[in-house]
Amino acid sequence: MNIGWKEIKKNKSRFLILGSIIFLVSLLTMIISGLANGLSQDNAALIKDLPEGHFYMSEDAEETYNLSRIDSDVQHEIMNDHQNAVALSIQMGFLIDQEDKQQSVAFVTATDSKLFTQVDEREVIVDRSLKEKGIKVGDLLTNNQLRDELVVKGFVDQKKFSHAPVAYINSEDYKKMYNVEQMQLVFLPGENSAQNFTGLQSYSNKDFLSTIPSYNAEQMSLTMIVSFLIVISGMLFAIFFYMMNIQKIGLYGILKAVGIKTSRLFKMIWTQMLFITIIALALSISLSHAFNSIAPEGMPFHLTFETTTQLSIIFLVVGFIGATLSGLQIRKIEPLRAIQQGED
């Protein structure tokens, strides 16, 4: 007989209250995780979508990519030795559309590579978010640092850097705009360990993301909120079951006196915790994914099934720990004390 389930059936409202709180906390956690993911994509999709590898920037750039300059000889040496190496530059800037509206973009140029969209001189390929702002294929865009106009040749999906849509331009146009000859970065995909190049410092993809201004601060704040919510849910379970157990000390004592194993009482609590958590999570996953599909276009919300699965496992583990901690008092209950006290 599943006594845990019997108790839920008899005390529906009590468990419904706990279930509702867990549902709300888990829903909030998933929504904030979706926002964290969305903001992360919005901030660095250009880098996040790259395969694992290593970025290299000049040592004297002090971890600031736009201060980095790769020596041309070193760049050629790397490109000759590593077929898949790509040199790239990223600079924040703006484009002026045909209606004279200024659009913030992240200009990106790269040497020949499948990892970065290639464009010809006086052409530009931009992130699709600019299409929603009225830019069309064939539009002529200008920039006050470039004498020539750039023709929009197409759009790419989800390519963002530092919350700005990416604009792929040719390296010759880039050089004219920023009056530089050297590239800022070299990226070596698929390398297990970082290579040593004279005057260059290596960064894993994750480390490089941290060099993006505001990326770490933004993600840490949201991760902190998510962590707190998870801890709160664990505490909710611990407090709820603790309060329930306090009320049932007499009952547990009698059950122990008649021969029920302590482990069975623990199983009762775990069953209840699992039942509540699974239903609460099923509802919050459904709702958060529904929100994922109806979220306003401009809202940086991106929730994957991988994230919800990870969060669900964490919630179950935290719930299990919370319920078990509260149940530790069951082990200490003396049947004798329960017998000697009156009925609840």
């Binding site: 006594i3 005390n11 009952l251 009698i254 008649v258 021969g259 017998i339 009925e343």
Partner: peptide, 25 residues
């Protein structure tokens, strides 16, 4: 505990029934 469960029966001053189980349960 096993002996208590199998060979002993207990009646106390108060019934101490499990509040969420029916008589049959």
């Amino acid at each position: 505990r096993k002996i208590r469960a199998k060979e002993f029966g207990f009646v106390f001053q108060f019934a101490h029934l499990v509040p969420f189980l029916t008589v049959e349960e």
